[in-house]
Design a protein around this nucleic acid. Structure first.
Lengths: 337, 337
DNA sequence: ATCACTTATGTAAGCGCTTACTGCCCTGAC
DNA sequence: GTCAGGGCAGTAAGCGCTTACATAAGTGAT
């Protein structure tokens, strides 16, 4: 169906090498010859076969990105930032979502690795062992939002300092009996946040916050919060590992007839759109998702092309966004960036 | 670096054909031979080269999806639904975002087409002409949320009926002087919604709603709404083409000191998360984004494999979600699906 | 006119697989 | 004991490109 380089060469009356040279501009071709080739290409609607090209060139001109999920803006934005830079750098983007596929992940990731020049892995989508194996097999890897692995490029966002800032803010406003909602073992970020918060609370002489495991969605946030807020020893603040949990907690608080922030303060992480529209507005930590993805694409490209031999672990800054859900503040101006 | 089939064959003491047969299971291989091959594969960490495979097989085992953007949950969810089914059907997924790349789109899309067995196109990302050209070149195409093209599979969500229902609801509650916010020429969906609304208003004897062009984001929604709400002939309802615009309008209404829904009713489309958390909650129309993507993957697969020769245009149902922003209702129970 | 180079093009050897053919060996029916 | 047939495995021909190498034709200097 599709035309091949041979047909173009025939029609133009040249050899396939010349066609290739015209199309890639890798060697000088006489103007008239070039014209003939271009006309033939046009006439046949010729498009080079990418697999053939990849095979001959020994590269895919494509990168892959693996993420847990795309619901919720977090990963979607990272992917978006990634895609935009990857396209700019001339590589196609293959995606793989691991959500609900625990069993097949290794196969899927290995298969993906065989189709790309390099891979970006978000979060804990892939076991450390498998990451190492893939990297060892020669596929450059950049991890994002995951505990850095030796010898592998890693990108993270700043968590501890912002967690400390958040905790300090809470204590300053009289909230000393806080709980942390979110499973700190399932996510590097959450663990760091939890640590930072712990440190700050300890420094400020408050009791160590209780850590309450909870999947990262509204429903589970709501359930977990409902239980905590209905219990005997009610915390006066819930620091949630992400905004979804926090918004779920907000619903739970409403349902329990509690006022936010008067009876209980609530904070999240990520600054999703709903955090701005909820009432009260949700105090949260904004992360540079887009930039994270974009930077991952750059780093991966550098690694693929070999222009950066040394491994880099980078941390991007985050910003605390104070809204009404944590008390002591009128609905503040939105300081958009 | 990576092992090839030749090395595996050498190590196992067989021919490459046998290795291939073991790996693909395309022909019977003696148990002992198979064992030897598998051991060799394991030892060398051999992974078949995907480009070589594609070239030999004449298929990519990959599909592509083109979308405008991934910010906002709409396209993200469609992509997610798509990816999950595509993976299940054994094809990798290549993505291409057209956002802010008007000029390069044709090249990018054509390049993408050369890497996949089929393409899903969301919205108006690609000109009709280019779509036809790609389809004519032999790449199966499924369009989503776009005016159906002759000879090309198309998937849409229902718009007119839900727009009519929405309009009827508004009129029933006393809002007769509505405006439609959103550019009806830039989106098939928006155009349909606008039509449906027009019909209903006409049927019910209300003035024809004014259509106010507006890009589909909060900021522009806010600006456009601010202007309308501050103007002389203030509408009593704003029907917005999506939730982002509506939420922007909500901010504008607040800023103008207007009460929603008492002074002005507001409705959106899509049912994004923030629509549930805004106060008042945003009346909107929920769309089966995930299913849309999943179905697109199925239809594309059927077309690629040739198991469905006839072109199909399908319309998926939507559901009106009434919340407080359109008046006449207490904050309703959330009827999640 | 000759030589040493450039410049433009062709030739052909891969790239790493899949698969149609072919051939070998072993079985069971006669 | 022969022979047909089936089960396995090897041979080799592509798949559609890129590119090193070879070649032919032109250029200017001598």
């Amino acid at each position: 169906m599709a035309a091949t380089i041979y047909q173009v060469a025939d029609l133009a009356g040249v050899s396939i090498a010349t066609v290739s040279r015209v199309l890639r501009g890798t060697a000088p071709v006489a103007v008239r010859t070039r014209q003939r080739v271009l006309v033939a290409v046009d006439e046949l609607g010729y498009r080079p076969s990418q697999p053939a090209r990849s095979l001959a060139e020994g590269r895919h001109a494509a990168n892959g990105i693996v993420f847990p999920d795309l619901s919720g803006p977090y990963y979607a934005d990272v992917v978006l930032g990634y895609e935009s830079v990857a396209a700019e750098l001339g590589s196609s983007v293959l995606i793989l979502s691991t959500h609900g596929r625990a069993k097949e992940i290794p196969d899927l990731v290995v298969d993906l690795a065989s189709r790309v020049d390099g891979l970006v892995l978000l979060g804990r989508t892939v076991d450390d062992g498998l990451v190492a194996e893939i990297a060892a097999d020669g596929t450059p890897v950049v991890t994002v939002a995951r505990a850095p692995l030796p010898g592998i490029d890693a990108l993270c966002t700043e968590n501890r300092a912002s967690a400390r800032a958040l905790a300090t803010h809470l204590v300053d406003h009289g909230y000393c009996n806080a709980h942390f909602l979110g499973d700190v073992d399932s996510s590097f970020d959450a663990h760091e946040r939890w640590q930072g918060m712990n440190e700050a609370f300890a420094d400020l002489g408050c009791p160590v916050p209780l850590q309450v495991p909870c999947p990262y969605d509204e429903e589970n946030g709501q359930m977990a919060a409902a239980q905590l807020l209905g219990g005997a020893n009610r915390p006066d603040a819930l620091v949630c590992a992400n905004d979804e949990i926090a918004l779920g907690a907000l619903l739970a608080a409403e349902a329990a007839g509690l006022r936010v922030p008067d009876d209980v303060a609530l904070t999240g992480w990520d600054d999703v759109m709903a955090a701005r529209y909820s009432r009260p507005g949700l105090t949260t930590v904004r992360q540079p998702m887009r930039r994270l993805g974009a930077l991952a694409a750059r780093r991966l490209h550098e690694r693929v092309t070999g222009e950066r031999p040394d491994v880099a672990h980078e941390v991007l800054p985050t910003r605390l966004v104070i809204r009404a859900s944590c008390g002591g503040h009128p609905e503040p101006d939105e300081q958009e960036e």
